[in-house]
Design a protein around this nucleic acid. Structure first.
Length: 271
DNA sequence: ACTGGCTCCTGAGGGC
DNA sequence: TGCCCTCAGGAGCCAG
């Protein structure tokens, strides 16, 4: 479900509600997400306070007294803050119950998400250690992307969705950023000029910044932690707009599978 | 070393 | 109504 703007929207919503709260109980209702849910969570987490609610890539990181709890929402996951006694629904897999009677409830129909205790050396964990720069990092430049792409034959869209290259860009914003940069998503990564990578680096930052300001993109079911939708969907230029007129030239938007994922673009404005 | 393809899982929607 | 197919915002793994 979520890309960087959606995860960051959730983080911003959760932080004020969770900071300083102490976990009093953990409820596990399904044993297996993308990684198995450890039964030990019910022993490890209670008694620990929330010191910070952070994000790295599309991971949410709850920094607690004795280490970090990592959450990933996969394709279909969402988090809600609700009274702990509220009756759980289908696919409500995990509750973190807090000392104010509220619970952070993790629902994930497809179970591609992750809820994992990383302990005190979170940065060393393989899920985090191989990640590329955040979009707003100083070293995420056109030069950096261009250097990474050198010699690569794969489609540029796949390159920018590779979390080892740059984090946070998923299938929606990859199409959107490439449209803004005027680059065809199927272009061979190693043959795109440095000038165009500079435009692309800017376009990635720009589209993510605007999506974040709009509270993310709600297509089917995205909601922030308070249940509100995001409003970026109405600002999408290409994603989900197959056959509709390009906002630049009026010609119909195309949809083509690249790396197994639908990719939306304008054949006239992107090369 | 890269690359593309497959995989995990459930649910929604379309065609017949 | 029901069945079957395709598709969905992620990302790890594997063979070639």
């Amino acid at each position: 479900m979520p890309e960087l703007p959606e995860v960051e929207t959730i983080r911003r919503g959760l932080a004020p509600a969770l900071l300083g709260r102490t976990i009093t109980a953990v409820v596990l209702r399904h044993a297996r997400l993308r990684l198995p849910l450890s039964p030990e969570l019910t022993n490890i987490l209670p008694g620990q306070r929330v010191l910070a609610v952070e994000r790295r890539a599309k991971y949410l990181l709850l920094r607690l007294d004795r280490g970090v709890l990592l959450l990933h929402l996969g394709m279909s996951g969402y988090l809600r803050l609700l009274p702990a006694e509220q009756v759980p629904q289908r696919h409500d897999h995990v509750d973190l119950v807090f000392d104010d009677g509220m619970a952070l409830r993790f629902n994930d129909a497809r179970r591609f998400g992750v809820c994992l205790w990383l302990g005190g050396e979170a940065g060393e964990h393989p899920l985090l250690s191989g990640l590329g720069p955040e979009p707003w990092d100083e070293d995420m430049t056109g030069n950096y992307l261009s250097a990474f792409a050198a010699g690569r034959k794969s489609a540029i869209k796949n390159l920018i969705m590779d979390q080892r290259v740059i984090v946070g860009v998923g299938n929606i914003y990859a199409s959107e950023a490439l449209y803004r940069a005027g680059i065809a998503p199927q272009a061979e990564a190693g043959r795109v000029s440095l000038a165009r990578y500079r435009r692309l680096a800017e376009a990635i930052r720009e589209v993510l910044t605007q999506a974040l300001a709009a509270g993310g993109t709600t297509l089917r079911d995205f909601r922030d932690s308070a249940g509100r939708p995001g409003y970026f969907a109405q600002l999408l230029d290409v994603y989900g707009r197959e056959g509709e007129p390009c906002r630049g030239c009026g010609r119909p938007i195309s949809n083509q599978k690249i790396g197994g994922r639908s990719s939306f673009f304008c054949r006239h404005c992107q090369h």
